[in-house]
Amino acid sequence: MIFQPAIIALLLASLVCVGLLVVSAPFAFDIIRHWNIRSGSERQLVLERRTYLLSTLLTFVFATQLVALLLFVFNADKMSSMFVGAMCAVGTLNVNVFGFPALIAQIVVFFLAANWLVINHVDTRAHDYPLVRIKYILLLALLPLLLVAAVLQLRYFLGLKADVITSCCGSLFSEEAPGVTGDAAASPPLPTMIAFYVALALAAGAGLFYRLRKRGAYFVALFSGAAFVVAMAGILSFVSLYIYEHPHHHCPFCVLKPEYHYQGYWLYLPLFIGTAAGLGVGAIQPFSRVPSLTVIVPAFARKLATLAAVMWSLFAAVASFMILNSRLVLLEG
C-alpha cells in the first residue's frame, strides 16, 4: 500500500459510508417488518421518523460517492508518475487487477444510488408512502454492492506497489490490444461515429418522446443505458483522438488532464447526469400503476426524461464541438 492523502481520504470515505449503512440496516429491517401506514401507534411514528434519517443518509452516501468517484480518477491520474510505464490514470488503475473493477463498481453504485433516490423521491410525494417496503428492500440490496465496491477499492489500494511496471493507455487502448477495449479503439471511425450519434439520438429522442407523449418510459432507460456504453466506446475510439489531435492516442482519462484543459469534464458531466436521469425514468415506471402514484410518477418521469433529453443533446453537442474544433482529420472527404 502507498500512503497517500487521497488514498486515506477515499478509504475513510468508503469506510464511513459502509459503516453508516451497516448501522442503519437494522432500521431498514424494522421498517420492512413493522411498517403500517394506517396505524397511529407510537412505533409507526418512530418508524416514520427514521425514514427521514435513512433518506438523508442515502443522499449523503450518494453525494460522497460522486465526489469519491472524481477523487478516485483524479488520484489515479496524479499517481501515474509513481509507476514505471504509467502516463495517466489508466496506468495506475492497471497496477493490479482490482483497479478497473473498483472503478466500475463505484460507477455502478453511483447509478444505483441515484435510482434509489429517484424512487425515494416519488415515494415521499405520495400521501401513503406506497413504496416504503420496496424501497428499503432495495436499500438492503444496495448494501452488499457498496461493500463490494469498498472491498475492491481497498484491495486495489493495498496492492499498489511502486516497483510494479504497468501498461498504460498506449497499450491498453491501442488498436492491437486484445479484448473489448482494443476492439473499441480499433473500430473503424465512420461506423463507430454513426453508431455513436444514432445511440445519442435514440436516447435524447426517447426522452423527448416521453416528455411529449408520456409513453415509452422503459425505452428512455434502455436507450440511456445503451447510450452510456456506446458513448464511452465512442470517446475511446474517436472523440479522444480529436481532443488529443493524435491519431493513435485512445484514452478516456487523459481528457481530464489539465494539458487538455479539463475538456473531459464537459463530456462526462452531461453523460453521467443524462444516464442517471434516463435510468431513473425506467426505475419508477413499474410503480406508475400504484393508485397514489398514478399522477406523481408520470409527472416526475417527465421531468427526468426532459433532463435526460437535454443532457444527451448537450453531450452530443459538446462531442461534436470538440470534433469540429480539432485539427485532426480522421475521415477524409
Binding site: G40, E48, R49, H127, D128
Partner: peptide
C-alpha cells in the same frame, strides 16, 4: 387525514 404521514 388521520393516516397521513407527518410530511403531508
Amino acid at each position: 387525514i388521520s393516516g397521513l404521514p407527518e410530511r403531508f
